[in-house]
Design a protein around this nucleic acid. Structure first.
Lengths: 130, 130
DNA sequence: CTGTATCCATTCGGATACTG
DNA sequence: CAGTATCCGAATGGATACAG
């Protein structure tokens, strides 16, 4: 899923058209890796840039950087930098607003799990009857 | 949002990788107009092609056609054709599986409404304090 | 009315090289 | 470690013309 949502929603909103509330919500996680980024922050806690790179398996730095920027822009994710001596440490974490997305993400996960289980059963059923 | 989700998720699934349950759910409505299509079917009941075109405001036939095809493919939407005499009537409706998305879509709508209200209040607050 | 076929512009994400 | 810059290919959506 690309981000036709985010751009379109932002245009609508800046034109005073607020009839896109559900699209607005989806635009929070419509980047290809955003859901997974949020999932990691929810389950594994705060993460540095490299840790996210590893856990995301196959994202380029540019893309990860962009998706994080948008999440920060949308106030879903917070970036903190702590400097100890001459080493800088970056950490990304969920904001309070980001935390309010957790029930939604869990619901998405549950629906997908149930649906995939259904599909699997159907496939087996069809195989048996072939 | 484009449909990087749908394609990616389908590839993962066909490779036996089922670790994308939430992405799978989002892929159900990741096309630019799918959420709105579902919203219309939920609130206004079954619709013909032309009715959807009108209510969607600015979609091209090709795009609408594609998004409907994918929704049908995902078993979220059903297409029925009734022929009376020599006139054919097409109607799109939600399937039983499609109906199970309703709570999710309502949740998305609620979150967006609340969040936009927050943002609006914040903006007014900032204006007052300028 | 309900689409399909073609062409085109834009956007998004991936690979790679470079920087502090 | 944490990015930015550049170039590129693929995918999406829009406009328009044509068809059953």
């Amino acid at each position: 899923m690309s981000d036709a949502f985010r751009t379109t929603v932002q245009k609508k909103l800046s034109n005073g058209d607020f009839d896109c509330t559900k699209e607005f919500t989806v635009s929070m996680f419509s980047g290809k890796h955003k859901l997974m980024i949020l999932w990691i922050l929810i389950n594994d806690g705060d993460q540095g840039f490299a840790a996210l790179m590893n856990k995301l398996n196959g994202v380029s730095k540019k893309v990860l950087s962009n998706q994080l920027k948008e999440l920060i822009d949308d106030q879903i994710v917070n970036k903190s930098e702590t400097i100890t001596g001459n080493t800088k440490r970056t950490a990304y974490s969920l904001t309070e607003i980001g935390l309010t997305l957790v029930p939604i993400i869990n619901m998405l996960n549950d629906w997908g799990k149930d649906r995939l289980a259904q599909v699997e059963i159907t496939q087996k059923f069809n195989q048996v009857n072939q």
